[in-house]
Computed example of a mutant assay.
Amino acid sequence: MTKIGIDPGHGGSDPGAVAAGELQEKDVTLAVGLDLRHRLQGAGLEVIMSRTEDVDVSLADRAQLFNREQVGLVVSLHVNSAASTTANYVSTFILAPGGQAEKIANAIQPELVAATGWPDGGVREANFYILRQTDAPAVLVEMGFISNPATASLLATIATRQTLARAIYKGLAVYLGLPPDVPMLPTDIQGNWAEAAIRRVIAAGIMSGYPDGSFRPDQPATRAELAAALDRILDKLK
């Protein structure tokens, strides 16, 4: 099983770039990172997060965590900023060309462009710490410009964050040979006594979560919900 490192940039006392409307980069990167984790877990991968909440984590600690866990690849998530409010593109960074990181970046970048419709900033090279200090191939995704008011307003929405996570997942799926899309696993099943069974019925298309992203595993099923699940089973038996 491939182990994936996900690094939501900034956090805690470090907000990262901040939009005029006070949207902070650290919040966008964490939301996308958590969404991406669920998608990768849904495909059966183990995911190591550098942070799962709004806390300070040093660059050294991030790289050391991924190296200690011996992840197979690292995706670091950021949002760009510029002095000009018209800057507007999405890009994926690598340390140097010619390795696996470039292949990962070349798989992710077109998915981001297709999903967002933002201009293609291409795959670029930079001497970023997380790219330099991780043992595994690493890419750093700059998810648009928070300094662009139109982009910032989109980044503040759940829909755009989900779009970004799904695009990055699809790029990783191309690189790793995973299913191109997987059902989103509800966040409230983790640790439940029936978590494994819930994961199987969701993956089989027999049951699904609620529109708000929950599964409510301890809530009794209605007769309608039971009928819907049984109907899906009958369809599969046919």
Rank of each mutant, 00 (worst) to 15 (best):
V75F: 05
Q100L: 13
A83T: 07
S91C: 13
G99S: 09
G72V: 00
V71R: 02
A82R: 15
V74S: 01
F93W: 14
Y89T: 12
I94K: 01
L95I: 11
L77F: 05
V71E: 05
H78P: 02
L95P: 01
S91A: 13
I94T: 13
S81P: 00
G72Y: 15
A82T: 01
V90P: 01
V71Q: 08
L73R: 04
V90C: 07
S76L: 07
G72L: 11
N88L: 15
A96N: 12
Q100T: 14
V90Q: 03
Q70N: 06
Q70Y: 10
F93Y: 15
A101V: 09
P97L: 15
S81R: 08
Q70T: 08
F93V: 13
T86V: 15
A101L: 07
F93C: 07
G99Y: 12
V71I: 13
P97F: 14
S91Y: 05
L73S: 01
Y89R: 08
S76Q: 03
H78V: 08
N88C: 14
Q70C: 02
T86S: 12
G72H: 11
T85I: 07
H78Y: 00
I94R: 06
T92P: 00
V71A: 07
T86E: 05
P97T: 15
P97H: 14
L73V: 02
A87T: 03
A96I: 11
T86C: 14
G99W: 11
L95Y: 08
T92R: 00
T85V: 11
A101D: 07
V71P: 00
V90L: 08
G99A: 11
T86M: 12
A87C: 10
T85P: 03
H78W: 02
A83N: 14
P97C: 14
A96W: 14
V71L: 15
T92S: 01
V71H: 07
A96Q: 13
A101Q: 03
L95N: 10
V90H: 02
V71C: 05
A83R: 15
V79S: 07
N88F: 15
P97E: 09
N88G: 09
Q70E: 08
L77Y: 04
I94H: 07
L95W: 06
P97A: 10
A83I: 07
A96F: 14
